[in-house]
Simulated assay, not measured.
Amino acid sequence: RTFAQNCRNIEHLNLNGCTKITDSTCYSLSRFCSKLKHLDLTSCVAITNSSLKGLSEGCRNLEHLNLSWCDQITKDGIEALVKGCSGLKALFLRGCTQLEDEALKHIQNHCHELVILNLQSCTQISDEGIVKICRGCHRLQSLCVSGCSNLTDASLTALGLNCPRLKILEAARCSHLTDAGFTLLARNCHELEKMDLEECVLITDSTLIQLSIHCPKLQALSLSHCELITDDGILHLSNSTCGHERLQVLELDNCLLITDVTLEHLENCHNLERIELYDCQQVTRAGIKRIRAHLPHVKVHAYFAPVTPPPSVGGSGQRLCRCCIIL
């Protein structure tokens, strides 16, 4: 309260990790800090819907609000917040596990300026909620739904049809998404720059072909644990405009069909800065050495299990792989 009373012109306030912050703090901010635009309450786990009601009444200039891991927040708090803070441009709700689709309906109705929305690990969210967001927030440029495991291609379709400015999509562990959804997305969202598709286990080279044709600005792509991706998909990506001119980061951990041929294709990607190849069991040291010779600035992260040591002299003792630990 003392801080709020004496800093009435404050516009940016970061309280990330201040676990003793309570609703009374937000009441004080609401009463004295009407100019507040940027507020980070990440992991302030004691705050409740009452805080959001207070902010909506006194901090109507809020543009950026981070409520990540504030897991007491429900749809009622979101409803109160957006009615008063309709100018929100960035809203982070990671780990707010009580949120349901109805919370997104309130955002749809009031936050038409929204550019960034993070719903990571909001596990109750379904296609219904994402469709609502897409229909009400046409300016959306960044969406994180990683860990929202109920989502299907219906969400990708809604994004493609309503959010042409989308630049960042994080959809890790959304295991029901398929090539059909990403095809529609790619054909309509030509501004895409970063995509995290880790553990989107149903996608194939078809998705990479569509991205290579329609998304020339793509800079970072994670395909870790997408085990159906092959060298042929990487060929299309590396021969595309984004491959030649933009691609900087490519993550292929646990893509078991990837071989040294992929690394040969990636030699065409002259802006490439980092490649992740952990547990790509068909990639060899020789293949990595070759790409480093062509692209000396690239960082290649891979892991090769140590060779099993020979038996001890005299045949006594156990044969153990050096990468194992006996518990």
Results as ranks from 00 to 15, higher is better:
residue 216 P to W: 02
residue 132 K to H: 15
residue 106 H to N: 14
residue 64 H to D: 15
residue 24 S to Y: 15
residue 118 N to G: 09
residue 88 L to K: 00
residue 127 D to M: 04
residue 252 L to P: 15
residue 314 G to Q: 01
residue 65 L to G: 07
residue 218 L to S: 01
residue 296 P to T: 07
residue 116 I to S: 12
residue 154 A to H: 11
residue 113 E to Q: 15
residue 82 V to L: 07
residue 180 A to N: 11
residue 292 R to Y: 04
residue 27 Y to D: 15
residue 231 D to L: 03
residue 28 S to P: 10
residue 112 H to V: 00
residue 162 N to M: 03
residue 261 V to H: 12
residue 28 S to E: 07
residue 169 L to P: 05
residue 288 I to D: 01
residue 134 C to P: 06
residue 47 I to E: 00
residue 111 C to D: 05
residue 66 N to H: 12
residue 64 H to N: 13
residue 157 T to Q: 11
residue 4 A to E: 07
residue 180 A to S: 10
residue 217 K to S: 10
residue 288 I to C: 02
residue 79 E to Q: 12
residue 236 H to Y: 12
residue 161 L to Q: 15
residue 138 H to A: 07
residue 147 G to L: 07
residue 136 G to H: 05
residue 327 L to Y: 15
residue 327 L to S: 06
residue 192 L to I: 05
residue 215 C to D: 00
residue 98 Q to T: 13
residue 135 R to S: 12
residue 140 L to G: 02
residue 42 T to F: 13
residue 317 G to W: 03
residue 113 E to H: 08
residue 167 K to E: 13
residue 47 I to M: 11
residue 181 G to L: 09
residue 13 L to S: 06
residue 20 K to M: 13
residue 141 Q to D: 00
residue 2 T to G: 11
residue 305 A to F: 10
residue 13 L to V: 10
residue 327 L to H: 09
residue 188 N to V: 06
residue 281 Q to E: 15
residue 78 I to A: 01
residue 251 E to Q: 11
residue 172 A to M: 02
residue 94 R to Y: 04
residue 135 R to M: 11
residue 222 S to W: 08
residue 23 D to W: 07
residue 85 C to I: 10
residue 208 L to Q: 11
residue 53 K to P: 01
residue 276 E to Q: 11
residue 85 C to D: 02
residue 2 T to Y: 14
residue 187 R to D: 00
residue 209 I to S: 02
residue 129 G to R: 12
residue 187 R to G: 03
residue 136 G to C: 00
residue 151 L to R: 15
residue 36 L to V: 08
residue 25 T to E: 12
residue 232 D to P: 05
residue 113 E to K: 14
residue 162 N to L: 00
residue 201 V to T: 10
residue 58 G to D: 00
residue 36 L to I: 13
residue 48 T to L: 14
residue 125 I to D: 05
residue 310 P to T: 05
residue 280 C to E: 06
residue 248 Q to C: 04
residue 164 P to T: 10
residue 257 L to M: 12
residue 200 C to P: 10
residue 143 L to C: 06
residue 63 E to Q: 14
residue 147 G to E: 09
residue 37 K to W: 09
residue 158 A to F: 02
residue 207 T to A: 07
residue 244 H to I: 09
residue 302 A to H: 14
residue 42 T to M: 09
residue 262 T to N: 03
residue 166 L to D: 03
residue 117 L to M: 09
residue 63 E to M: 13
residue 178 T to G: 01
residue 254 N to C: 11
residue 259 T to E: 05
